[in-house]
Write a protein that binds this DNA or RNA. Structure first.
Lengths: 144, 144
DNA sequence: TATTGTTATACTCTATAACTATA
DNA sequence: TATAGTTATAGAGTATAACAATA
């Protein structure tokens, strides 16, 4: 890789992240559930019930954002707010049956949305994306 | 790559794009120019003066977003709005001297912001990111 | 009529600061 | 006092719809 392409790697990454993000958000808006809220839903789906604070850590956002999004999900009937067993300050966020159904469907839906696109790729390109995703996660962890 | 990891590739991609985006946006907020506006600035820096419509195509956003962001940049003294030579409906967006300076500096600044993070990576990982960025751009082009 | 761009409006997502309730 | 979470407030970024000016 040349020094010149190194220079633009950061820009290319941020631009492609921004644009991909925009596209995916729009897809989900069409599907009636905003992408950040869907992320919360599927995180709980995968990891099980979590308190608001634990969720904030996993989603890497601040508690107020969790608060807003989780209330929206409760209003949609996808999430329940359960009192914590021993600490009444905490709130345990749990999927409703409908929430579990939606979260489960979303995996398939997302697969479908991107499947067409991934279909254009070679296996090697898919591997590249999977590796890149892991690298990006690591970078995000360190940029604080 | 297993079928299972295939299933989650789309989710991993969208999550890492969202989080990276968030981090980069916050970095730029600290630097006083919002990232989307900076993207406009550097696009014109790289490609030369563009009309609002041309810019909307390149940035993959709708004209109203260009309108808002470009006016903000004009207010900051970074962008000029020049009447089109032959078509008075169109507006040509051109960098001011200050805009050119800021855009130029941004390449270095962005390099500095991510340089620390890229420094943790192996040359092979950087290559992976560069390739992934190109693949993602291609995907974004097709998701319409 | 068609194209270019702006204005009006609305929504998502996020943050920081200030607050409440509980530990 | 410290912690968990909410409310209040602000700002970025985006879209669609309706509009004005020009071709």
């Amino acid at each position: 890789m040349s020094a010149e392409s190194d220079t633009y790697l950061a820009r290319d990454l941020s631009v492609s992240a921004m644009r991909l993000n925009r596209r995916l958000r729009l897809r989900h808006v069409n599907d009636r559930i905003p992408v950040a809220q869907l992320s919360i839903l599927t995180t709980i789906f995968r990891e099980g019930s979590l308190t608001a604070g634990e969720l904030a850590v996993r989603e890497r956002i601040k508690p107020p954002s969790i608060s807003r999004s989780s209330h929206a999900l409760v209003e949609m009937g996808l999430l329940k707010r359960v009192p914590h067993a021993t600490d009444r300050r905490q709130v345990v966020l749990t999927l409703t049956d409908e929430g579990r159904r939606v979260a489960g469907e979303d995996v398939a839906a997302r697969e479908k949305v991107l499947a067409d696109q991934l279909g254009f790729l070679t296996p090697q390109q898919r591997t590249t994306l999977a590796e890149a995703s892991n690298i990006l996660i690591g970078i995000v962890e360190r940029v604080q």
